[in-house]
């Protein structure tokens, strides 16, 4: 989609406004929250954030694939991947807001 990319720095500014934390504290807490989510996923647990969605980790099996560059068959090893399922409410809100924007 169009335009701007938001990073930790932007998020931390918004967080400072909402909570009154210092710059350092706010960046540090974003890092702490993200890190903890990674640790929970590593334990194969999912995390449900109300009105936002669910983060989860999933085991994938080994399968055959093809190297698209060389077209050679190759084994894709078993691995874990992380995923996110958006909550119904947030999904509807985003779609509504982006539809309005256009017209």
């Amino acid at each position: 989609m169009s335009g701007k990319t938001v990073t930790r720095v932007h998020l931390s500014q918004a967080l400072r406004k909402k909570t009154g934390l210092s710059r350092k504290e706010s960046l540090g807490s974003i890092e702490a929250v993200l890190n903890e989510i990674v640790m929970v996923l590593k334990e194969d647990k999912s995390i449900k954030i109300p009105l936002f969605g669910v983060f989860f980790a999933r085991q994938k099996k080994e399968r055959m694939g093809r190297n698209p560059k060389t077209l050679k068959d190759a084994v894709i090893s078993a691995r874990k991947v992380a995923g996110f399922r958006v909550s119904r409410l947030m999904k509807d809100r985003i779609d509504l807001s982006l539809k309005k924007k256009k017209h």
Binding site: M1, S2, G3, K4, T5, V6, T7, R8, H10, L11, A14, L15, K18, T19, I30, V33, L34, I49, L51, F52, M90, R93, I94, S97, L98, K101
Partner: peptide
């Protein structure tokens, strides 16, 4: 606040890169 801000950013159609 963190997840709220991510939602609002997406509502504006912007991308978030962490």
């Amino acid at each position: 606040a963190l997840f709220e801000e991510i939602s609002h950013t997406l509502e504006k159609g912007h991308r978030i890169e962490l």
